[in-house]
Design a binder for these strands. Structure first.
Length: 401
DNA sequence: ATTCCACAGGAAACAGTGGTCC
DNA sequence: GGACCACTGTTTCCTGTGGAAT
């Protein structure tokens, strides 16, 4: 009698033991008691913030570092420690943490700042007001409550990008807010992934925001390995991961500017794959598979999240691989005709192409063809099958794939 | 030495949405 | 109910460009 294949599989999975004992620890946001290899940075940051405890205004602070170097974790940890110290005193310190990437607009960023200060919808509506009005209300609340604010702006480079688009000088006003506050203070802590973003800043802002700067250097492969070992000890059963796998994992993450988040992600996914394959240990091949899976997942989510015309354009590039903008534009126009969509102008399409190029799904190369003009030739960096598979469920594209 | 192609990509303006305020 | 605001996605208009062809 042949056994049911599903049953067989389920039996096998049940009898195989789990390699991972605590998944929570395999997420980067899990904060261990100590953050490894960042003692000097922690000390520096604490130094600059100490004036708060002495009831005076500390320097504004800029923290730099590539993704996954632990910047945000360190800042959050220190601030919560400071807050604990002053909790019982009658000297209120308020910590406000805002991530610029989570807000699409400048307005939204200021509003979420206001919400943290306890301004409700009626006092600070989330649309409709002038930005200067929002600002006025924020300062009024701070002043009235005699708050001492530490305003942490994560990914401040993104904020600078937003500001430069609208031409508003909110950052400047923030850095000078103390001149308008009499019974309260405002300290800014900016966190940035981009070491060059200062160049795009108004020089008046740099002088006050960049009073103190702290750089988080990239983790070395050895440090990554130590971090991994710490987490593995907590999250995997003993001996579940082969030494060579840890080495490979640290090396792969180290190659990408020492990103600890990526290293931990890699080991987690590798563990899951190994479990599914009912392997007793996590081996090098699992790390490799994990790396590939993470890449592919990133690509499919990116593809899915594009709006209609961008998707059409990606399909057009797929069909007209290696062709010039003009040819891609005609391909796109005929696709529009088939699915009865109004086509956009060529100017908009060139813009979209460069936006998609930024995400890495397509690459473009400028070609000078003499009398045949200048153009940019695009091609997909991912496999056409990937595009087809991702889009095949969408009814709109039924006729064109 | 000029000309001239086929776009790239900047700047500005505009339409539409969803809101406040008085 | 009209003036005003922020913001997005778009169109319109424009200037610039490297090198094959002349």
């Amino acid at each position: 009698m042949e056994r049911d294949p599903v049953d067989k599989l389920l039996d096998a999975v049940e009898s195989g033991k789990s390699l991972i004992t605590n998944r929570e620890i395999l997420h980067f946001t899990y904060i261990p008691d100590t953050i490894p290899h960042r003692n000097s940075e922690q000390e520096q940051i604490t130094q600059t913030l100490i004036p708060i405890l002495k009831h005076s205004r500390p320097s504004n602070l800029l923290v730099y570092g590539k993704p996954g170097t632990g910047k945000t974790l360190v800042v959050k940890k220190i601030l919560s420690q400071i807050q604990k110290r002053v909790e019982k005193s009658n000297f209120p310190i308020k910590l406000v943490y805002v991530n610029s990437k989570e807000e699409t607009t400048l307005y939204g960023l200021l509003v979420s700042f206001g919400r943290e200060l306890g301004l409700v919808e009626e006092k600070l509506p989330s649309t409709g007001l002038a930005i200067s009005e929002v600002f006025k209300r924020l300062l009024k609340t701070i002043e009235e409550n005699h708050y001492n604010i530490v305003f942490v702006i994560d990914e401040i480079d993104h904020l600078v990008h937003l500001v430069s688009k609208t031409g508003n000088d909110v950052l400047y006003q923030l850095t000078r807010a103390n001149e308008r506050l009499k019974k309260a203070t405002l300290t800014l802590v900016g966190i940035s992934n981009d070491l060059t973003f200062k160049e795009r800043l108004d020089p008046r802002v740099i002088s006050s925001l960049g009073e103190e700067e702290i750089v988080f250097t990239n983790y070395t492969v050895e440090q990554l390995k130590k971090i991994l070992e710490d987490r593995i000890q907590l999250a995997f059963i003993k001996g579940a991961i082969e030494e060579s796998a840890i080495n490979l994992c640290a090396a792969m993450a180290g190659r990408e500017h020492g990103d600890a988040r990526r290293a931990i992600d890699l080991i987690r996914v590798a563990g899951e794959i190994a479990e599914r394959e009912q392997s007793n240990t996590v081996k090098e091949e699992h790390i490799r598979k994990a790396s590939q899976k993470i890449e592919e997942d990133k690509e499919t989510t990116a593809l899915r999240s594009y709006p209609l015309h961008e998707k059409l354009l990606i399909i057009a590039v797929m069909k007209a691989a290696g062709l010039s903008t003009g040819e891609i534009y005609s391909a796109y126009k005929s696709l529009c005709k088939i699915i009865r969509q109004k086509e956009l102008t060529q100017r908009r399409i060139t813009q979209m192409l460069s936006e998609i190029e930024l995400s890495g799904i397509i690459t473009g190369k400028i070609i000078h063809q003499g009398i045949h003009g200048r153009t940019k030739k695009y091609k997909l960096t991912i496999s056409p099958e990937m595009v087809k598979n991702t889009f095949k469920d969408e009814l709109t594209f039924e006729d064109i794939l």
